[in-house]
Structure formats: C-alpha cells, structure tokens
Nucleic acid binder design. Structure first.
Lengths: 209, 209
DNA sequence: GATTGAATGAAACGAACGTATGAATCAAAC
DNA sequence: GTTTGATTCATACGTTCGTTTCATTCAATC
C-alpha cells in the first residue's frame, strides 16, 4: 500500500483518544500504545503531536465539508431560493451523517469536532482549514438571500447557532448525562429534532430594534 | 479578613487562566505567578489543582444559578403559563448578564463556562454541582407545561440547544474570528438575537413522526 | 516578651510529557 | 547474496508538571 498501515492505525487511535480526552489530555504514548505502534512512530510519520492532530482533523473535517458543499450545489441547481429547512438540512445534515455509522464511530467524530472547536489553545482552531470557511461563506450567501430581513451580523450569529446546536448536542453523548436529563438520542431522531429546532430559529423575524 | 487575600487572588488568576487556556493548559505555576503568590499556596489553600478548579467553577456558576432560579420564581408568581420568550429570557439571560460587566470580565466568565462544559475530562463536568441540575429540572417542568406537544426527550434536546447557543456564541469572542465572519457583538445585541433565535426554536411544533 | 497557629517561602521529589537518537529489521532491487 | 531505503524498535534526553517538605515569617494571645 502507498502509506504504511501503522500510519492509519495511529490516525485511528489518535482520533479516538483526542475525541475522548482532548488534545492536551492525550499523550503520544497512549496513542502509540493503543495503535500497537512504537512511541517514535508518531515522530516518524507525522513529525510531531501537533501535526498528527492536524492530520486527524483534516481526515475528519474534509468529508463533512465536501458533503455540505455538494448539498448546497444540489439545492442551488434546483432553485436560487431554497426553503430554509432544506438549507438547514444541507448544512447540518452532514454533521449528523457521521453518527449513523453503526457503532460509536460517529459519536467519536462529533466529539472530536467539538474538541477542536472548543479547545482554548490558539493553535487548535487553526487546524480547521480555510475550506471550512469557504463553505460557511457560501451558505451565508444562500441564507442571506432567503432571509433578507437579517443584518449580516445577526445572520452570522444564527449560523454559529447551527454549529452550536449540532455540536453541543453531541457533547453529552460521551459524558455523564445530567441526572434527570435523558441521554441524547443518537441517529435519526436527533437529526429530525435539530432540523426542526434550527429551521424555526433561522426563520424567526429579526427582533425589532 | 476571614480568608486570606492571596486566596481570592489565586481564584482570580485561576479563573482567568483556566478560561483562556483550559484546565489542562494552565499550570499551577502560571496561576501562582499571575497571582503573585507562592507555588505552594495552591496546595495550602485549596489542596490540589482540581479542587482549585472546583472552587473557581463554584464561584462562577452560583450567581448564574441563583439568577436563573429567581427569574423563574418571578415568572411563575405571575402566571403558571408564561410565554415561551420570557422563559427563554429568564433561562438564558443570566448567562448574558455576566458579560455586560464593563470590561472583559464577563467574556472570561462565559469562556470559562464553555471550558467547563466542553472539557473532555470526566472530572471536570462533575464540578457543575447538583444545584445546576435542579435549576434545569425546574425550567424543564415549566417548558413542558407551555409546550405540551413535545416529548421529554425532545424537550431536553431543545434545552441543551439553549445552552449550546448561549455558550458557543461566546466561544469565538476569545478566539480568532473566522475570516469573513463578523466578530460576535458583545452585550445587548447578542442577547436580543439569542432570545429571538431561541424563542422561535423552542416554540417550533414537533416534527411529524 | 514568650508562645502559638496560620500563612508564606525556597527548594526539591518523582512522574509524565514530547522529542530525538542510533541500532535493528525487513522487503525489494540489483 | 548483497545493497539500499524505508520502517520499527528500545532507549535516553531535557523539560515541565503537580505535589510535598520543612524552615521561616508574622500577627494575635497569654
């Protein structure tokens, strides 16, 4: 094969451990041990722990970005003014799709995205590449067209809201659910709930100034 | 005074550094240096770094919980079926109030809450005490009364959505704003936007099964 | 003024961390 | 069969971490 197998095994182990314990909470030793590889393999294949994290983030984010982009293309090919619900679904849907992958793999993926988005380290956020930004800008333009009453600032606020709901929903999947708080339902139900919730939110008329 | 002054200086420094760099990204040495205290002072006054973080979290969360509780009391004293918008405001408002405190103090507070909520460490989330859970349960009951069409699971999902939007909105205040993404507006505007956004979302009819 | 208990200070401990090094291994090319 | 380049391995280095220790300071009490 083109790249060594230990390389992908390290990527898998790192993705899992980074998702579960965060970047700083995961040691290179733990990663290589889980991957069944030698400690020095990370340095050899990726250069450093930070570059390994960047590779993990790329591998996770890229298919999501591609799906978001393809969804918007399909929508705009039909009409320049798609309904808000379909824009929301095209934007948020790919984040949920990762979860329906049978076992807990998707949950880990989501957890990893939250880890990246919320990590206080300045370097971590830079791992979400400019591709992500360009996708967001395309959706911004589409939303702005069908929601003409909103100021750009408020529209950006609402788009952050979409990311927030889809991301933090996954948050408690891996953590102790609060007592009395039903653990979040994975899969199709959460997806429907999120689309409903967010479509109503995005469609709200702006507050009177 | 009852407690030593270095104690609160350590609490202040820890709150700031934990908010900026996360729990694991902050060393006891950095805290005591910023506080102008000795390294051993943390051990003496708090026992350990973890217990210091718990004390910081308590100090931040308690007034918010109290405000949320008082807001609900005031609302329910008027009518058992308050409008959704006022429930949302009573629940999410206190999270915004911390921000209007002049300088960046409130932003740090919000950032710290996100740090606590999103930290992958199992122990960190336990620092949000049972008081927080009881407040959430009270609001859950109030929302359930005025939104009778929702299943408990979907209502919990929506309440997590409120937390998500109020929390992640603050996230990018301290981080590099994405290029092309207008930096979030602090204070009153974000508060109005959030109430509007979330009221519409909470009021949405449940998706047809 | 001596005593006491809380608080602070300087220094060190052992452990864990990311990274670097150089030898050993292995499959393929000649 | 030897050579070569890529990969794996055991090991060590230097740093930083949370924590502990014990001497010292200091204000209050007798």
């Amino acid at each position: 094969m083109a790249t060594s197998d230990t390389r992908t095994q390290i990527l898998d182990a790192a993705e899992r451990l980074f998702a579960e314990h965060g970047y700083r909470g995961t040691s290179v030793r733990a990663i290589t041990k889980l991957a069944g590889a030698n400690l020095a393999a990370v340095g050899y294949h990726f250069g450093s722990k930070a570059e390994l994290m960047a590779a993990v983030a790329r591998r996770v984010v890229e298919p999501i970005n591609a799906a978001q982009c393809a969804g918007l293309d399909k929508l705009l090919a039909r009409t320049p003014d798609p309904p808000v619900s379909e824009l929301v679904e095209a934007f948020a849907g790919p984040l949920f799709d990762e979860m329906s992958a049978g076992d807990e793999g998707g949950a880990r993926t989501s957890r990893l995205i939250v880890t990246i988005l919320s990590d206080p380290a300045e370097e971590v956020r830079s791992w979400t590449g400019p591709a992500e930004d360009s996708v967001r800008e395309r959706y911004f333009a589409a939303f702005a067209r069908v929601l003409p009453g909103l100021s750009p600032e408020e529209l950006w606020f609402r788009m952050r809201g979409i990311l927030a709901v889809t991301a933090v929903d996954r948050l408690e999947v891996h953590q102790q659910p609060s007592p009395g708080c039903v653990s979040p339902v994975a899969g199709e139900a959460a997806r429907r709930w999120a689309i409903t919730f967010l479509t109503a939110a995005m469609s709200a008329p702006p507050p009177r100034t």
